[in-house]
Nucleic acid binder design. Structure first.
Lengths: 189, 189
DNA sequence: GTCTATATTCCGATAGAC
DNA sequence: GTCTATCGGAATATAGAC
């Protein structure tokens, strides 16, 4: 409960903008009780970083090497968008951490991300080698997929402005998945 | 000078994490002098939001409708990446503002972004109508281009981890531009 | 315009009763 | 484990001399 409240507040106000008092208040506890469970504000934050990294991990491992590239990436992009839609706070929380330089990320965590990314890139490289898609650098492909899928949740004010809607709905995220896959075949020549 | 220091600090530490004392210190002034030029911290922040929006504007208007789509978008993407590379603090500052819900953006500013975006989308829609590229929704295309080009500066810790480099260099940004354009022609079938 | 000193508020963290 | 009360420090903003 404390962690649920915390991720929402951290994502909306950042580390320094979030106070233990407000976390306690929204969790229906006196401030001292929060300190009973967590020694410092930073420890709460670190716990949340670990949680989000685990989610990230699971999504990347799910890319199906057996499917044709278009279907495999459509599934991945759809899952990522759905996660962003349902867990917008988590997505924004992690984006905020990266934006501030990733100071709370341990070397161990970065190495882990590197390993998982490398495996996912190998799958794409195989597709390229087998002539199933045009040659590109898989690392840059994943950067494109991550950034685009997260944009809708992380930078929602710009997404709604661009799409000229008052609020992003389920259908907007579904449309985004289709469009992302379509744009990977933009060129006609 | 105050504004230069402020954008760097805001981008690294966020609104609440940035103190007037530190702005003053890094600008080589006593704290009271900052208050002589700006009544509150929020006013400094708002001035910076306006400045960054002006840059955003200029880049979008520069898309050349006369060029073939591939060249026009390559130029746009290259310019955006170069801006992110050279003015990383501005890029991160604005990303932070959007991440926190865009509370400092006025309705007027949003409407302006909408107008400029609509014009850029019209250029792309013309390409589609003339059969110069495959049919996609231009709004989602710009979301993809914005998010991807900004990722390298905004989420640098993840970009370096993914690319397995210790620091992003000029060449990495140049390579990103080429890869983004290449990935818009990923599908072979 | 520039600076020192300070008022005021609020936050992170703790002490200690129950 | 739960709560009230409070300490120590730091931040925004201002007062007022030069």
């Amino acid at each position: 409960m404390i962690l649920d409240v915390a991720v929402r507040l951290f994502s909306a106000k950042g580390f320094d903008g979030t106070t233990i008092s407000e976390i306690a208040e929204q969790a229906g506890l006196p401030k001292a009780n929060v300190y009973y469970y967590f020694p410092t504000k930073a420890v709460i934050y670190e716990r949340l970083v670990s949680e989000v990294l685990a989610d990230w991990d699971i999504a990347l491992r799910r890319i199906d090497a057996e499917l044709p590239p278009r279907e495999a990436l459509f599934n991945y992009v759809s899952d990522k968008l759905e996660f962003s839609r349902v867990h917008g706070e988590k997505s924004r929380f992690f984006a905020g951490e990266l934006l501030r330089g990733g100071k709370f990320l341990t070397r161990r965590q970065k190495r882990h991300v590197q390993t998982v990314t490398r495996e996912a890139c190998a799958v794409v490289q195989n597709w390229v080698d087998q002539g199933k898609c045009n040659p590109i650098n898989p690392r840059h492909l994943f950067i494109m997929l991550w950034s685009t899928t997260q944009f809708y949740a992380d930078f929602a004010p710009m997404a709604t402005t661009t799409l000229e809607v008052s609020q992003l709905r389920r259908a907007d995220f579904a449309e985004a998945a289709n469009q992302i896959i379509a744009m990977l075949g933009l060129w006609r020549d």
